[in-house]
Design a protein around this nucleic acid. Structure first.
Lengths: 207, 207
DNA sequence: TGTACATCAGTGAACGCGCGTTCACTGATGTAC
DNA sequence: TGTACATCAGTGAACGCGCGTTCACTGATGTAC
C-alpha cells in the first residue's frame, strides 16, 4: 500500500541507517538487501523504489557512516586527543562494530566494491585526516603527516585487535593496550612527563 | 584418472599456493573453489579429495601466507628496518596484493570466517610481532609495544593506501609517503640526523 | 620381472541454496474538480 | 469543503545466477602373486 511522502522519506532514511550499521558489522557482502529492509521494518520488494541497486545504497551508507565519524572527531577539543584515542582504542569500539569507525570496517573490502563506494570512501578518509590534523597539538605541514600516521595506527590497530579477538584474546587486548601507551604521546594530553613537549613540532615523540 | 601419489602431493601444494595468492588478491569470499582449482591446473570436482571444505583450505592458505611473510621479515638485519619499511610501504606492495602482507589482506574479513581461519590468523600475527620486535633497534619490554604499534601503522597505512587508490590516487600516494617519512625514525637506519638516538629506548621518536 | 586387478586422484554433471533484482498487484495518498 | 480517481510506496512471489558441495564414473597407479 502507498504511504505518505513524509513516511516514505523516513523509510528511506531508516534503510540508510540500517545499512550503515549492518555493513559495518558484517561487511557489504555479508548482508543481504532483504536483511537490511527487514531491519528497517520493511519488505525487500520495496527496496528498488528507493535505490537503483545495492551498490548505490552501499555508497550512500558509506558516506553516512563517515559523516558521523568525522563529526564526532571534529567535535572534540583541539590540542588534546587523549580522550578520543582512548575511546577509539577501547574494548567497546573493538566489540561493537555497528556504530564504529568506517575506515576500520570498510578498508579491507572497499576495493572489491562499486566505484561509487570507493569514491565515497576516499573522500571520507580525506575529511577524516583533515579533521584529525586540526586536533593535533602540532601545526604546519607536519600535522598532516602526523595525522595520516596516527590514523593508520588507529585503523590498523583496531582491525588487528578485532581480527585476533577470537583466536587469541590476550594478544587482542595487548594490541589495544600497546597502542594506547605508545600513541598517548601524540595526543597532547597535559598530564604526561615534563620535557616531552618541544616547541619544535618535528621532535614530537611517540614514546 | 588417477595420478601418482607424488603428483597428487604436488597438486595439493599447488592448490594451497593458488589459494594463498587469490585470497589475498580478492578476499576469501571473492574467489570460488572452481577458480582456485583452475588456477592450480585442475577441475573443481577433485577439490574435496584434498580438503574437507573451502574453510579448511582458507585456514591452510592463511598459515601459508603468514609463513612466507614472517620468514621474509625475520631474514633481514636486526637493528635496521629501513629497507623493510620502504618495501612494505612501496607502490608495488600496494598494487600487487597476491604476494603481499596477509595481515593487510585478511584483517578486515577474518572475523567473518571459520574459527580455524581466525586461529591461524591470530597465531600469524603473534609470530609477526615477535619477529618485528627482534629487528627493532631497541630491546626490552618496550620493543614489543613498539613492534605492535609499528605493525598497526604498517597494516593500517597499506590498507588505507589500497582502499583510496581508485577514489583518490593522490591521497593514496600521500599516505604511503607520510608513513615512510614518519616511521623512518623507528627503523634504526644509520644515515638520519645526529641526536636522534638516545640510549634510553623510551625516548625513541616517531618524529 | 611380468601380469591381473583393486585402488583412488581427478572429471564433469548435477544438487540445493541464497542472493540481487523484477514484476503484477494492493490500497492509502493526494490531486483535480 | 467534499467527492472521484489517478498515482505510486510497499508487498510477496518469482526469476536467473553463481556458489559450495556431492556423486557416478574413468583410467592410470601400484600392489599381490
Amino acid at each position: 500500500m502507498k504511504v505518505s511522502r513524509e513516511t516514505a522519506a523516513r523509510h528511506r532514511a531508516a534503510i540508510v541507517e540500517a545499512a550503515a550499521r549492518l555493513f559495518r558489522e558484517r561487511g557489504f557482502d555479508g548482508v543481504s538487501v532483504a536483511e537490511i529492509m527487514r531491519a528497517a521494518g520493511l519488505t525487500h520488494g520495496g527496496f528498488y523504489g528507493h535505490f537503483d541497486s545495492k551498490d548505490a545504497l552501499a555508497a550512500e551508507a558509506c558516506g553516512h557512516a563517515f559523516a558521523n565519524s568525522v563529526r564526532r572527531l571534529a567535535e572534540g577539543p583541539a590540542g588534546d586527543l587523549s580522550a578520543y584515542l582512548d575511546s577509539y582504542l577501547s574494548d567497546d569500539h573493538r566489540d561493537r562494530r555497528q556504530g564504529g569507525c568506517p575506515m576500520a570496517a570498510y578498508a579491507g573490502e572497499v576495493t572489491r566494491q562499486d566505484a561509487a563506494v570507493q569514491d565515497e570512501f576516499a573522500e571520507g578518509v580525506g575529511r577524516y585526516v583533515e579533521a584529525l590534523a586540526k586536533r593535533l597539538p602540532v601545526s604546519g605541514g607536519d600535522a598532516r603527516e602526523q595525522a595520516i600516521t596516527l590514523a593508520a595506527a588507529l585503523v590498523g590497530g583496531l582491525a588487528l585487535a578485532r581480527a585476533t579477538a577470537a583466536g587469541d584474546p590476550v594478544l587482542s587486548q595487548e594490541i589495544l593496550t600497546a597502542l594506547r601507551h605508545q600513541l598517548a604521546r601524540l595526543a597532547g594530553d597535559a598530564d604526561d612527563g615534563s620535557k616531552i613537549h618541544h616547541k619544535d613540532t618535528k621532535t614530537q615523540r611517540v614514546r
